[in-house]
Design a protein around this nucleic acid. Structure first.
Lengths: 248, 248
DNA sequence: GGGCTCGGTAAACAGCGTTTACAAGGGAGT
DNA sequence: ACTCCCTTGTAAACGCTGTTTACCGAGCCC
């Protein structure tokens, strides 16, 4: 079973401990509290020992980001599993609600993954990037795309035809559509290419813009007035969203 | 003219220098580079001297946030001034494009102001909060609301009637509408209350959600595929936005 | 068993926010 | 003009941080 030698198992174990402890500090006291010394202290080791696992604090943070994405992915997978397989609209709603719930429950993680100024050449975590083998990063995006794929595979016709896509965007949308098809195929969802035109890709993109905007505004408290209860606001937005996407 | 004593003038001058230097460091090397010691070093003083002006680093950062909001407000004011006073659609477009341009040109500031996990009870900077006299914080929000006010004052009928607002949201929307009316009145824009129903407030809110989502996604590089050129994507979204808002 | 690699430590360096005690100088009252 | 205070700055120190270096011991392979 465990072909790994004792040292390898021990190393993997402490590595998990490091990341888990970093997560604990993050949720408890914010990003500035996840310091190498604090992590080491809680683990009963010294700070330089962490350099046997990560080249720098920033490197650890980066791996943390990926862990967070993976957790969000499994979280949404759980939400999705509770919905009837044939209820495609329900699946979409479940993923959207799950995304919001996760973001509100983990604001620090949300900010770290979805609201950090990006360096060029890095458009994760939603995208299915092919950087280092099959990184866990895209597990979140894969959930989204899998749901979209299921919806499309069953012949749902999303709103807006291909003609609506501006000429300057067609190339990008074809690119996006191919990414979608590839990700869906990887997830085992067979979707006929003729169901996924550039117009459909554009609708999915707009869907993401509105969902992300709503959730980010709520997490960051940037609504232009004091919202007494954000939930009905979100539900109202979600209703409009699926309506405008042609899912209702 | 300058009724202030020499000491007061000197203090105000160094205060400006501190903030300006902090801004310089922020745009040059990111938020983690704006340290008290670095600021003091550039100003030729020592770090503890800064405590004569701000009670802590976090206090300075908070004032920096307000400066940033104020700058964004004047920026947008400039964009707005270049548009014909009677061209209300053009004014809306100018403010939206100006907001995006500013966010792309100042990603660090954008993240600091619009994407920091908010403590409860703080829904600035868009809101017209009445905290400490007339803080510069809401100068950005005021620009937005002024434009909205001008559009409404001239009888533009936004899409969607009041009946569309879910019952649970009506109270909040009345609240928002009152905030809007108050802000517009403060900006000298007369808008008949019957032009601004809760449905209209809801449309404005959705407008903000989509604009914010699009800009934040672009700044943070969180689009689900590699976008070759974001500008046509933004313009396409903007077109759909004004169409859905009933401005076209 | 010898040697080598790997995971850990201790010590040190530079930089950080912050506090304390102290010096110099402008402003106002007499 | 002298005095006194309050303001603004400094120097030194504390404890924290990330990171590097040199070293040590136990696991592993030959």
């Amino acid at each position: 079973m465990t072909q790994a030698t004792r040292r390898e198992r021990g190393r993997a174990a402490t590595d998990r401990d490091i990341r888990q402890q970093a997560r604990t500090l993050l949720v408890a006291d914010g990003p500035q509290a996840v310091t190498l010394r604090a992590i080491a202290r809680e683990l009963g080791i010294t700070a330089p020992a962490l350099y046997r696992y990560y080249t720098s604090r920033e490197d650890l943070i980066e791996h943390l980001r990926q862990d967070i994405c993976a957790d969000l992915g499994t979280d949404l997978g759980g939400d999705l599993a509770e919905v009837d397989e044939a209820d495609h609209l329900g699946q979409v709603l479940a993923v959207c609600r799950g995304f919001r719930a996760w973001a509100l429950a983990h604001p620090q993680e949300f900010a770290m993954v979805f609201a950090s100024p990006a360096e060029p050449g890095q458009h994760c975590p939603v995208g299915a990037q092919r950087a280092g083998r099959d990184v866990a990063v895209d597990s979140f995006g894969r959930i989204f795309l899998t749901v979209a794929g299921r919806v499309l595979a069953n012949g749902f016709q999303l709103a807006q035809a291909d003609a609506e896509v501006p000429a300057q965007l067609v190339a990008d949308m074809e690119n996006f559509r191919d990414d979608l098809l590839a990700a869906m195929a990887e997830s085992g969802v067979q979707v006929p290419p003729e169901y996924l035109g550039t117009g459909t890709a554009y609708v999915i993109l707009q869907f993401w813009v509105r969902l992300y905007g709503q959730v980010a505004l709520e997490v960051f408290g940037q609504f232009p007035y004091p919202v007494s209860d954000c939930e009905p606001l979100f539900e109202s937005m979600l209703t409009g969203l699926v309506r405008d996407a042609g899912l209702l």
